[in-house]
Amino acid sequence: MSDAEKSGINSYLTFKIGDETFAAHVSKILNIIEMTRITKIPMVPHYMKGVINLRGTVIPLIDLKLKFGMPETEYNLNTCILVLEFATENKISYIGAIVDSVSEVIEITDTELQPAPGIGSKYKAGFIDAIYKTNHDEFILILNIDLILSSDEIENIRESASIADTKDS
């Protein structure tokens, strides 16, 4: 959690993708915007949904559900775009991630974080930085944004997610 260390802030934004609750460190999130007009781009991977205009900057859009191998997001009132900051090739880039809904900002201290399960493919497990268990015995998966957004493949993170499920039950 180098970002958390750097910023000294332990706030995480939680959001839902499908039934799963995920979180990302607030330093990674530039903006939360409502669904807006999307310009589709032909001949791209199906999880890339096109581009949007964010105050004069063209931002690519990704459907995290599709990226994670889940069915496509159905847009409704709760659907949001998280504008995320991620680092590739020593450059900061921005991308809009479509999520089903945004929940809340929570404080998590580093000691409350549990390491991501090492079971299953190591690479995919890398997408989850850590796991946080709430007071209601809910599991929140903390995403490694940089890694997810810099890979080109569709990643089935359900594998690791289902591990969380089993722990949960």
């Binding site: 791209v44 890339m48 063209v58 931002i59 690519p60 990704i62």
Partner: peptide, 10 residues
């Protein structure tokens, strides 16, 4: 305006 890395291969 650049399209960003995700559309490079497009």
């Amino acid at each position: 305006k650049p399209l960003g890395k995700h559309y490079k291969k497009q």
